[in-house]
Amino acid sequence: MQLRKIAFILPLLTFAIVSVYLYSALYSDPRAKESSLLNRTVPDFQLNDLMDPTRQYKVKDLKGEVTLLNIWGVWCTTCKAELGFLTKLKEELGLRIIGIYYPLDVDPDLDGPLDLAKLTNNVDKTLKAYGNPYQFNMLDIEHQLSFDLGVTGAPETFVIDKHGVVRAHHMGDINPRVWQIKLAALVQQLKEEE
């Protein structure tokens, strides 16, 4: 009979535990998935160069230098708007900026194969018009790296330290204000790190 009594308390206990979790979930942002990547190494990847498909990059190509990893596309107006300021950062601070090109319309069923020639032509025109901050661009054709990084849209920028570890994730464009408030000090500090 004792066992029976204990069994009757089980539902209450279960509910109590569930409530604790529900309470804590209330105050955390369900969309804050990307934060889980903070302070972790960039996930493994293998991507082609946007302009030169014979060149390939891996995660080791990001290491050794403080880097801004910038997600962008020519279809994204805000991305174009930040090209100018990013170019200035590259020129004035000597900061390395690497682009992850996020193509749209790449559903092989609906859209057919990607017209690479047309795309590179567009990219070329855009970079000539607004400025080219990139050391190189990687074509994330299957959105795999973007997915692994927890990208929710473009533009987004990751600050990567010398060991390839994600130290900041910024959603939206980088402008002088954002740079001063959120990123400048961090980048400076990372540059001084060993």
Binding site: P11, L12, S19, L22
Partner: peptide
């Protein structure tokens, strides 16, 4: 907003908590 969520959670805890406590005490 979380304020609303918290209110519903408290309601939830009261309704379910009280009924399951009752159950634990009386079901025998």
């Amino acid at each position: 907003d979380p304020g609303r969520g918290l209110f519903i959670l408290v309601l939830l805890a009261l309704v379910i908590g009280i009924s399951l406590t009752y159950f634990a005490a009386r079901a025998d």
